[in-house]
Structure formats: structure tokens, C-alpha cells
């Protein structure tokens, strides 16, 4: 696919230009080139980001558990059609509650081209829990550091560059409800989707050497069995944790499909389980 088209207007080639290149497609998600998943803790303004990108007006109440089911929308950016899937807000992907399974299954088996993680700048530490977990599943991640205005009001400054360095993926500060940072977010999504951005994702440092060794051993074997699997380490961790769903995916060979689709084009498995 072509990324750059020559044109005389600087704005159209500059990824940071304006929102003018964004065409919100609402619920029209036909014929997309890329699938983008939207993950994040509850109450981080995930739905606001979803609305800003798709032009839909999903109601955004300020309380946890508002988004129970998955919402989908679309947008057109730089001549590429993106399908955006809003996942339920979760604190983690390890507790196997229903909403976590929906989110986890989509990120793992749905193989989105980009996973945007919306993070609340005022509660960064707790939000990073989810980010670090997702980074073990996929490195095609953009962190949307939302509510930076709230953080400022609380006397906090978040250094997004330091954060991007530590996480190894793009970090875009936004105030989604005022549309601030959305052009930059779009540019980052596009870069990651097209493969222009090379991530060096953070890996969880297991402080217990015995565990770290167990993970490495198992991960190596998983990689040998399912060549090209992008997240063998994570699968190893899930198996060591006794995750039935992942155990089943190994047994049935479902993981093999993921391995074959190592260059996610979003089409490998559209329908997520459950």
C-alpha cells in the first residue's frame, strides 16, 4: 500500500497537519484496511476517544462499567479506512471476568493492526498495569495519554517522551473531550498500522529468577511449535498461570492460526470468540 502521495499542499502530507484529513465514518465499517482496537481502564475517557475518531456519540457517563458490549465505528485517514472497535474497559486482562475475556480475546485472536490503550494521566501507575500486559500480547500499540488537563489541575506533569522511551511505543498526550491531540493520535495510529513505526516494547521484568527461567523455557518451546507467534512469552505466562482458554487454544491448534497471521492484516480472524 502507498503511504505517501505527492501533493502540493503541505498540510496533506504533514501527519500533524489538521483533522481535515480525518473523515469520520460513523457506524460505516465496510471495506476497512486496518482494524484498530480501543482498550483501557474504565473511566479513562475511552468512549470520548472513540467518539472523537468515529463521529459517533456513544454516551460517556462518568462511572465504571458503562461500556458493557463492544461498539464499532469507522474513520478514513490518509486514504485508508480504519475500523475502530471499542473494547470493554478493564483494569487487567488476567482475571477472567466476562469483560476481560472479551477484551483479551479480541486483542489476541482478533489480531487488530493497532491497539490504542487509553490511559488516565492522573492515575498513570494503575493504568500502566494494563499497558504492560497488552505489550506482552502485541507490540502494535499506541498509548493515548488522556486527561492531561486533569493531571495538570491536580499538579501533575507527565513526561510523555520519557514514558514513550520506557514503554517503547508511541505515547500521545490528549484531551479527547476537547479534541486536543487527536491529529497526533491519528498520525501515530497510521504509522503503527502501516508498519512505519518500529516498536521496542517493554518486557515485564520478572523479579523472581525461577519464574523468569520457567517463562523463557516454555516460551522457547512455544515458539518452536508455533513459528512466528508474536507473543510466545505471554502465552507461556498464561499457561503457567493455568489459563484454561489459552490451554484450549494450544490444544486445538488455534494458536497456529495466529502464528501464520504473524503480519496482522486484520483479516485473519475477524470474529472473536464468545
Amino acid at each position: 500500500m502507498t503511504v505517501h502521495t505527492t501533493t502540493s499542499h503541505a498540510c496533506e502530507t504533514c501527519p500533524l497537519g489538521t483533522n481535515a484529513q480525518l473523515i469520520r465514518l460513523g457506524i460505516n465499517v465496510e471495506g476497512w484496511n486496518y482494524v484498530v482496537a480501543l482498550a483501557g481502564n474504565p473511566n479513562t475517557g475511552k468512549s470520548t476517544v472513540f467518539n472523537a475518531l468515529t463521529g459517533l456519540r456513544q454516551h460517556t457517563g462518568n462511572w465504571p462499567g458503562k461500556t458493557v458490549t463492544r461498539a464499532e465505528g469507522g474513520f478514513l485517514y490518509q486514504d485508508e479506512r480504519f475500523k475502530l472497535v471499542d473494547l470493554p474497559g478493564t483494569y487487567s486482562l488476567l482475571s477472567s471476568s466476562l469483560d476481560e475475556e472479551v477484551a483479551r480475546d479480541f486483542i489476541l485472536f482478533g489480531q487488530p493492526d493497532v491497539t490504542v490503550i487509553v490511559v488516565d494521566a492522573t492515575r498513570l501507575e494503575r493504568n500502566l498495569n494494563l499497558v504492560l500486559q497488552i505489550l506482552e500480547i502485541t507490540d502494535r500499540v499506541v498509548v493515548c495519554l488522556n486527561l492531561v488537563d486533569e493531571a495538570e489541575r491536580h499538579g501533575m506533569t507527565v513526561d510523555d517522551r520519557a514514558l514513550a522511551r520506557d514503554l517503547g511505543v508511541p505515547v500521545i498526550p490528549t484531551v479527547a473531550r476537547r479534541g486536543e491531540g487527536i491529529p497526533e493520535l491519528l498520525a501515530a495510529i497510521h504509522e503503527v498500522a502501516s508498519g512505519a513505526y518500529k516498536a521496542r516494547p517493554h518486557r515485564i521484568n520478572n523479579h523472581n529468577p525461577a519464574l523468569a527461567q520457567a517463562i523463557d523455557t516454555l516460551a522457547a518451546q512455544i515458539e518452536a511449535r508455533f513459528e512466528g507467534l508474536p507473543n510466545a512469552r505471554w502465552v507461556a505466562m498464561r499457561l503457567l498461570d493455568g489459563d484454561e482458554r489459552i490451554l484450549e487454544a494450544v490444544r486445538s491448534g488455534e494458536l497456529g492460526i495466529l502464528a501464520r497471521g504473524a503480519q496482522p492484516v486484520g483479516s485473519a480472524l475477524q470474529q472473536e470468540a464468545a
Binding site: Y91, S92, L94, S95, S96, S97, E125, R126, N129
Partner: peptide, 11 residues
């Protein structure tokens, strides 16, 4: 069980 995990998810 689940409760322990939920506590940990909350940090």
C-alpha cells in the same frame, strides 16, 4: 481466587 485477582488488578 477471583477476589484476590481483582484486588491485585486494582493495584
Amino acid at each position: 481466587g477471583a477476589e484476590r485477582r481483582r484486588m491485585m488488578d486494582l493495584g
